[in-house]
């Protein structure tokens, strides 16, 4: 498990800077070492928020400075970086961060999930199942799942230490009492390794099941709040729920207007003044991959003569669904 991280960590610090006057990947090696130490602690205690000396970055807080510090720390010359925001590679902030590392680290970048060794993300987990040799880095605005229940750090630290999570269950119960079911749709709290309650960052709860037993290492960085946490590969991650009100993910009656997918997270796009809308995959690379394989809105089952690659994707998705089903059964 951690052999993967340590292989990343043991990469020799390189001085061949991509941007003049700055170290490789912007941060100086001392800062990177400090962040690596915090990261190792985070991997050793899954879901626990490790305070670290978060540096000021040339991007504003709330725009991914935490994720960027983690990426800057683990990235090496051989890495291929993918950056997504809302599941898409070409949203402006994703473009900006990808360019930052292309410039300061001179690394290869990609839009293909399968080709990336590092994926920095905001608000989504890719639809394609990640592998053990990949690292997923989340940008986190507020790392504390209990923050809106108890605003004080001094208190929430105690609550985590004592595993005193009743307040969150009460909040979810109040949802059930008021609305008939749990009304949290994103930023949905999870329990990691049966010990720490963790904020999965504002991903839709649709993505929560993907975190469970994920083969890839998941790192979370909150820049302004100066916290790092992690979910090591193959770790149990359970979304909070009740026996009689089990955790559920969003579903759509529509399917993607481009690739016909009926199992991915869909974005709603308003088409005209009359409010007509279409639904498209939020994960643009997944959508592209399906289109390349011959899936269309008119032909969601795909064309005859499927490529082996396509079969693999289908299998992986099926496996993911199975895990999801297992999760529900638990």
């Amino acid at each position: 498990m951690s052999s993967q991280l340590s292989s990343q960590l043991n990469k020799p610090a390189t001085q061949t800077a991509g941007a003049e006057g700055y170290n490789f990947a912007y941060l100086d090696e001392q800062s990177k070492r400090m962040i690596r130490r915090a990261m190792l602690k985070a991997v050793a205690i899954p879901g626990y928020q490790v305070p670290f000396g978060g540096r000021e970055m040339p991007l504003p807080h709330g725009w991914g400075t935490g994720g960027m510090q983690l990426t800057a720390t683990v990235i090496g010359e051989a890495d291929t970086l993918k950056v997504i925001d809302q599941g898409a590679d070409d949203t402006t902030n994703a473009v900006s961060i990808r360019r930052f590392f292309a410039k300061t680290a001179g690394v290869a970048t990609t839009e293909h999930t399968a080709d990336a060794s590092l994926i920095q993300t905001r608000h989504r987990i890719p639809e394609r199942q990640l592998r053990n040799d990949q690292i997923l880095i989340y940008q986190v605005p507020i790392p504390e799942p209990l923050r809106f229940i108890e605003p004080r750090e001094t208190e929430t630290r105690k609550m985590h230490a004592l595993r005193e999570y009743g307040a969150m269950q009460v909040k979810l119960y109040e949802d059930v009492a008021r609305f008939g079911h749990i009304a949290t749709s994103y930023d949905y709290p999870v329990m990691v390794n049966d010990r720490y309650m963790m904020d999965p960052s504002p991903i839709p709860k649709f993505d929560n099941p993907k975190m469970n037993q994920m083969p890839a290492l998941q790192l979370f960085g909150a820049g302004f709040e100066k916290r790092i946490y992690a979910v090591p590969p193959y770790t149990r991650v359970v979304s909070l729920d009740f026996d009689d009100y089990p955790f559920e993910v969003q579903s759509w009656e529509e399917s993607c207007s481009i690739c016909g997918s009926d199992h991915s997270f869909l974005d709603e796009v308003i088409m005209d003044d009359a409010g007509n809308k279409m639904f498209v995959c939020s994960d643009t690379d997944y959508c592209r991959e399906r289109v390349e394989q011959g899936f269309t809105a008119e032909n969601p089952e795909g064309q005859q003569g499927l490529t082996p690659e396509h079969n693999q994707v289908q299998q992986e998705n099926k496996k993911q669904d199975d895990t999801k089903a297992e999760e529900m059964a638990l």
Binding site: T92, N93, H123, S185, P202, P204, F265, L266, D267
Partner: peptide, 8 residues
């Protein structure tokens, strides 16, 4: 910044 996914 875009919040399409959360808003969705």
């Amino acid at each position: 910044l875009p919040h399409y996914v959360d808003f969705q």
